[in-house]
């Protein structure tokens, strides 16, 4: 685990869910951690929506001050070096695709200086339409890297079909993740496994268990 963890990926790949889990797990181990909501693209389903859960679990949240309001404008009213100087670990959750990775470019030099204590993770869900195979997923990875001027250091395989995820989906996602790892030379940081009823029978060994915080409003 590094001081700084950047979470990037395609829209809807599960960046915020992974970021939240990763930060909460860190806090549970007694680490001081700040989650940074750096999504300047999509105001829906953003990290800051989980504010209550972070508070309950001892995770600090840094988010644009108007996040979650009707004035959700694309601004960053905090800076990464300042948050870093507070001495806590940082989990930086970016917006989707290259568009969401641009703001990180502003802190490229800072991240570069702290390269050895920084993980830049590419979250991929192979059930998403535009990252259906390793080649497509690599294309979006490269666009993200170009946008922020930084290179990813690992793959988070978060393949899932929402509440219909089953062992077959998990298995085929794993194979595709190994393929993109071979294609890019990037190590697999982890394979995730959601804590939902349809995945209950799957052996958790070798998986990063994920709590799914986003619920359907009709349940």
């Amino acid at each position: 685990m590094k001081r700084i963890t950047v979470i990037a990926g395609h829209y809807g790949s599960g960046k915020s869910t992974f970021a939240a889990n990763y930060a909460i797990d860190m806090a549970a181990r007694g680490e001081a951690v700040t989650v940074v909501d750096m999504d300047t693209v999509n105001p829906y389903y953003r990290t800051a929506d989980l504010g209550d859960i972070f508070e309950k679990n001892g995770v600090k949240l840094a988010a644009p001050r108007y996040a979650g309001t009707n004035l959700d404008v694309p601004i960053l009213d905090f800076d990464i070096p300042g948050l870093y100087a507070e001495g806590r670990n940082l989990v930086i959750d970016l917006g989707g695709d290259d568009a969401g990775a641009y703001p990180l470019g502003k802190f490229r030099q800072f991240i570069g200086l702290h390269k050895n204590e920084c993980d830049i993770l590419y979250v991929v869900n192979f059930c998403r339409f535009l990252t259906h195979n390793a080649e497509e997923a690599e294309e979006i990875l490269r666009e993200i890297e170009r946008a922020c001027g930084l290179s990813a250091t690992g793959i988070v395989n978060n393949s899932n079909l929402g509440f219909e995820t089953d062992s077959e989906i998990i298995g085929s996602g794993r194979l595709k993740a190994e393929k993109i790892s071979a294609l890019t030379g990037l190590p697999i940081f982890c394979h995730t496994l959601p804590d939902i009823p349809s995945c209950e029978g799957i052996d958790r060994e070798g998986y990063y268990p994920l709590t799914v915080y986003i619920k359907n409003v009709w349940n």
Binding site: Y11, G12, N125, C127, R128, F129, H132, L161, G162, E164
Partner: peptide
């Protein structure tokens, strides 16, 4: 991938369709 299920946002599914 003719009958394969994909995880999509409503907006994306509408656009692709």
């Amino acid at each position: 991938m003719a009958n394969e299920r994909m995880l999509m946002k409503g907006n994306e599914a509408l656009a692709e369709a």
